[in-house]
């Protein structure tokens, strides 16, 4: 019985999220556009997330290189280290790790911010003033997350590769030119483009889930905490599901 109730709740939640997402296209994309608020959100969501993304990307590149080296030395292919790390970072690890960091920072902040606006009736105050809160609060945030995550991923990939270059130079000496030449020589258009495209979907998922959870927050301050937490959990799970689908699609298109 409990299983049926949980399944019904899951279906309800899925339906509600789908309807909420549908409103983004039916309401959020129509004029009049909140350009000023969109820029403000791009600054908050993109620019202010850059230090965290940069730090984690740098450490990720450095650690990945240091962990991979012994295995490659065993097989006598240590010279392929930049190629291996470059492919791993650009195709998979860079987009997914950046998206997860982004979900943790931005998903929770959107969930908590909109949740607290909901429980303090600020969203109702916008509605009664004749302002469309979905357009002002949701559409701008979802657009900002969708646009900013690919940019952060590209920057994160670059910083991660720089971390990897330093990692290579801990045990041997390689010039920066040679390192990046090897990396870029091994990368193809079909490695870069799908990984950037999927980050658009990651960003969209983080924005929609954060806004949905915040918009549907209840039970006072406790509800705000639950919204922030569940926004991170759900958007992280969605990132992996989208990643799985993206791999299947690129496979079908022969891009792998």
């Amino acid at each position: 019985m409990a299983l049926i109730v949980s399944f019904k709740k899951f279906l309800d939640e899925t339906g509600n999220i789908a309807r909420f997402t549908g409103r983004f296209f039916s309401v959020g994309m129509k004029p009049r556009y909140e350009n000023r608020e969109l820029l403000n959100q791009c600054y908050n969501i993109g620019y202010l997330s850059f230090p965290l993304v940069a730090l984690t990307a740098f450490i990720m590149g450095l650690v990945l290189t240091m962990q991979l080296r012994p295995s490659l030395v065993d097989y006598g292919v240590e010279s392929q280290l930049p190629v291996m790390v470059g492919l791993a970072i650009v195709r998979e690890i860079g987009p997914v790790i950046t998206a997860l960091i982004f979900a943790g920072k931005i998903g929770s902040s959107i969930g908590a911010e909109l949740g607290s606006m909901k429980v303090t009736e600020q969203i109702d105050a916008m509605t009664v003033s004749g302002i469309k809160p979905y357009k002002y609060l949701v559409a701008t945030r979802v657009m900002a997350t969708t646009l900013m995550l690919p940019l952060l991923t590209i920057l994160g990939d670059g910083i991660s590769l720089f971390g990897s270059y330093l990692g290579v130079n801990i045990r041997s000496v390689t010039s920066i030119d040679l390192f990046f030449l090897q990396v870029f020589k091994s990368l193809e258009f079909s490695d870069v483009l799908p990984s950037i495209i999927k980050t658009l979907f990651f960003g969209f998922a983080v924005g929609i889930v954060g806004c949905y959870k915040g918009f549907n927050s209840s039970k006072g301050t406790q509800g705000v905490g639950i919204s922030a937490n569940s926004a991170v959990v759900l958007s992280s799970v969605l990132i992996f599901i989208i990643d799985l689908l993206a791999v299947q699609i690129t496979e079908l298109l022969g891009l792998n």
Binding site: T120, E121, Q122, D124, A125, G130, K132
Partner: peptide, 18 residues
């Protein structure tokens, strides 16, 4: 939205944008 422009609403919690 049009009708609401003629109606004001003062919330118990004030609901100012913090």
């Amino acid at each position: 939205d049009k009708a609401r422009s003629k109606i004001g609403f003062l919330f118990q919690s004030n609901a100012l944008y913090d």
